[in-house]
């Protein structure tokens, strides 16, 4: 018996016409341009989502009011073929800073012999997101819950303490 029953690893694929360099760049540096805005944790509408293109980079959303909510971190950055990021939004739909509670998403990209690029995503260690907490699926969208870990954008003036 291991430490917890494993929630099956999620896999998903996408096939795109872009070559592998562009497919990687589009997935990562233009993340906010294609991610469905329904899936976010901030209390205001999502304006953008950013995946910082480097190891140790942040992965976060920015709300229309400038609030930033972390989603995870970049663990591996090997353009144009591989990246690994953490997804640290817990079963309660809040950002959890503890790396032990982090699930991982690995995105290998391969050039297809017939042209274009195959993206094969793997989302693993989903059981870590539960970590002893009951899973409570949001009634509609992730956004319905809100996240206390969200902070005002550093670029915005702060109210005096």
């Amino acid at each position: 018996m291991s430490s917890a029953p494993t929630v099956p690893t999620m896999t998903g694929t996408a096939t795109v016409a872009l070559d592998v360099d562009r497919a990687f760049g589009f997935f990562t540096e233009f993340f906010g341009s294609w991610w469905p805005t329904d899936y976010h944790i901030g209390q205001t509408e999502m304006a953008d989502a950013v995946l910082e293109p480097r190891e140790g980079g942040r992965w976060y959303e920015r709300g229309v009011d400038g609030t930033e909510c972390d989603w995870g971190r970049v663990l591996v950055w090997e353009p144009p073929h591989r990246f690994v990021v953490t997804w640290q939004i817990s079963g309660r739909w809040q950002y959890d800073d503890d790396p032990k509670h982090a699930s991982e998403i690995e995105g290998p990209l391969q050039r297809r012999p017939s042209g274009g690029t195959l993206v094969e995503l793997e989302h693993r260690h989903l059981d870590r997101l539960l970590d002893g907490e009951p899973f409570a699926p949001p009634s509609k969208k992730v956004a319905a819950v809100g996240a206390p870990s969200c902070k005002p954008s550093p670029a915005l003036p702060r109210a005096p303490a």
Partner: peptide, 8 residues
Amino acid sequence: LAAYQKAA
């Protein structure tokens, strides 16, 4: 992934 594919 459907959204990524479409946008790409």
